[in-house]
């Protein structure tokens, strides 16, 4: 039948589209390693367990934001009793994780998670700790 080439062509196109991740991945020699993320400061403990932070940090950050902006809650007490200053830039980035680019983006970009609107207000701290602190202080004001 005359339409068979058309049908088989369409089928091939469909298969090609469906297997896009395969040939794209093979061509780009994608690795399964995932992003390498390191905290700048070698602390053993984050404000919450690592597994929780991986999956649900956005919830914590939203809770921090809402608490601080709306209810003036400036401090966060972790499960182990440690009290942290509620601040994305001042606490998270300055004290442990370095910068947005090095820490946040590595996973966010990897997983294609469009960064939420954190960075509409916050800035990623510059490299030197002194300036970071100054920036943090500035932010706190």
């Amino acid at each position: 039948m005359g339409d068979r080439p058309l049908i088989y062509g369409g089928l091939c196109l469909f298969v090609a589209l469906v297997t896009f991740p395969v040939w794209k991945g093979v061509a780009a020699q994608s690795s399964t390693k995932g992003p390498e993320v390191k905290a700048v400061v070698d602390k053993k403990q984050c404000v919450a367990p690592r597994a929780y932070m991986r999956e649900a940090h956005m919830e914590l950050l939203v809770a921090w934001r809402d608490g601080k902006v709306r209810r003036q809650e400036r401090h966060y007490t972790a499960r182990d009793g440690t009290v942290y200053n509620v601040s994305l830039t001042g606490t998270c980035l300055t004290q442990c994780h370095g910068s947005k680019e090095k820490f946040c983006d590595s996973c966010h970009e990897y997983a294609g998670v469009s960064a939420p609107n954190c960075w509409g207000c916050h800035t990623s701290p510059p490299a030197e700790p002194a300036k970071m602190a100054a920036a943090a202080a500035g932010e706190m004001r």
Partner: peptide, 25 residues
């Protein structure tokens, strides 16, 4: 319930590129 997206993506890429990994979590 949340999921570790990075782990999921590692699994997915592994599947797609025929180098399967079985991530934790």
């Amino acid at each position: 319930t949340r999921v570790d997206v990075v782990a999921v993506k590692r699994l997915a890429i592994g599947l797609a590129t025929f180098q399967p990994v079985v991530p934790d979590g």
